[in-house]
């Protein structure tokens, strides 16, 4: 999990996104326990209320669930849910931003397509 204080996002949102990233990367697998808000608070030097706010956001989204007296667990199906919602964000976050920047720089549609093809070759 990575959390940065210079980031423009609130720390609790960064906490939520960092947990999601780790679920996508199988660092936290479904039906396994994630670190407690106390552990997050101590290792990132953040207020425990902030950590709890990030985790509660994921509870509301159904990504994480609480087992009373034990802790927080990754829900089954969480990885698929995260992947789907990230796919929906992909257009806004990357494609729309890319088109805007390309227009500013006068890069043509064909050039962008060529760049994508070149990039795909590099990353196999």
């Amino acid at each position: 999990m990575k959390v940065s204080f210079d980031n423009e996002k609130s720390i609790y949102i960064q906490i939520a996104e960092a947990i999601k990233d780790d679920i996508l990367k199988d660092i936290f697998e479904e039906e396994t326990q994630i670190p407690s808000t106390t552990q997050m608070s101590v290792s990132y030097r953040i207020n425990p209320a902030t950590a709890a706010k990030g985790v509660n956001m994921l509870v509301d989204e159904g990504i994480i669930y609480k087992k009373r007296g034990i802790g927080m667990f990754v829900a089954s199906g969480a990885k698929e849910d995260i992947r789907n919602s990230r796919k929906n964000e992909f257009f806004d976050k990357y494609i729309a931003a890319m088109i805007e920047e390309a227009q500013k720089l006068g890069i043509s549609r064909e050039d962008i397509i060529d760049m994508i093809k070149g990039g795909e070759k590099k990353h196999g």
Binding site: F5, I11, T38, S41, V42, S43, Y44, R45, I46, N47, P48, A49, T50
Partner: peptide
């Protein structure tokens, strides 16, 4: 800061911290 937060988690109570190192405590204070 690490020990302080661990302590706070074990024994939650009210802390009022006066400091000039604001950026360092910005994540710690509520």
């Amino acid at each position: 800061y690490r020990i302080f937060l661990d302590n706070f988690a074990r024994k939650p109570r009210t802390f009022i911290i006066s400091t000039h190192l604001i950026e360092e405590v910005s994540g710690i204070i509520e």
